[in-house]
């Protein structure tokens, strides 16, 4: 069984995000980058599936991103992924979901696939579009926000729970299928030291747009990012101070009535 796991390099969840001067990206100095946390559930599920199915099953990671993505790819390899494709091209700086899905579709088709796992969204852009556009491009079913995944014994179909508002929805999908993973699907393993050691010898195939048969970066679709803005600042906070609490409460009531006009 040929299993593909998608991964994206994103700023660490603990990183403080600041918009750069041009308003077209974030300031990357001093920011640590990690594997998109939702993608880690995909990696884990892919590895578990391989362990279950056995035989000549293989897990290949596919990552589109800048040169620095090597470190997160190596981490996936250290977790147990067999090999990786790194799509890396200067023309793919700040790509849209449309562009990235088009490029991923080509690379994944070249690899061959039975099942694709990815995160339900990137924790950086929060667009949650790539997997759906990719499903369209590959013309395969998609199941989003998976919390339970099982494969039928005859390997013909997948049975899943997907998280919806207020509960789970149980669905069945034929293979090949793309599954986006939600928190709770599994508990991703750590990259073990033997894994880190073995990862040194595993292959990362680096491909640029020309290698994938593109003359230029594919169209970014019908939407365009105009500008990145910092989080709007919260409103002014006025502290009510008085010698006696009772006076402070009176003053607060007056302000709520006369200035805020909420009571």
């Amino acid at each position: 069984m040929k299993i593909i796991v998608l991964l994206k390099r994103v700023p660490d969840t603990e990183a403080k995000i600041l918009i750069n001067q041009d308003g077209n990206g974030i300031r990357e100095d001093g920011v640590k980058f990690i594997i998109n946390t939702y993608d880690e559930y995909g990696i884990e599920e892919g590895l578990r599936l391989k362990e279950k199915v056995g035989g000549d099953s293989k897990v290949t990671a596919v990552c589109a991103g800048p040169e620095e993505s090597t470190e997160v790819i190596r981490t996936a390899l250290a977790m147990g992924v067999d090999d990786a494709v790194h799509i890396c091209d200067p023309a793919l700086a700040k790509p849209s979901p449309f562009t990235i899905a088009e490029v991923l579709a080509k690379a994944i088709s070249e690899e061959g696939f039975d099942i694709i796992f990815c995160g339900k969204q990137g924790i950086d852009d929060d667009m949650a579009q790539t997997q759906s556009i990719l499903a369209e491009k590959l013309d395969i079913p998609q199941v989003n926000n998976a919390t339970v995944f099982e494969l039928a014994d005859d390997l013909s179909k997948a049975v899943l729970n997907r998280r919806i508002e207020g509960g789970d929805e149980k669905v069945e999908a034929s293979l090949p299928v793309i599954i986006s993973c939600e928190k709770g699907l599994n508990d991703p393993r750590y990259a073990s030291l033997p894994g880190i050691m073995k990862a040194k010898k595993k292959e990362i195939r680096v491909k640029n747009l020309a290698d994938l048969g593109f003359n230029e970066a594919p169209s970014s679709g019908r939407s365009r990012v105009l500008k990145w803005l910092p989080m709007p600042k919260g409103g002014e906070c006025k502290m009510v101070e008085a010698e006696e609490t009772v006076d402070a409460v009176k003053e607060l009531a007056r302000l709520l009535r006369e200035e805020a006009k909420v009571v």
């Binding site: 990690i34 470190e71 190596r74 981490t75 990259a191 880190i196 040194k200």
Partner: peptide
Amino acid sequence: TDEERMIQKTIRDF
């Protein structure tokens, strides 16, 4: 090194 950062991340997370 990249490798040492990976080791550090694993043990830090653990």
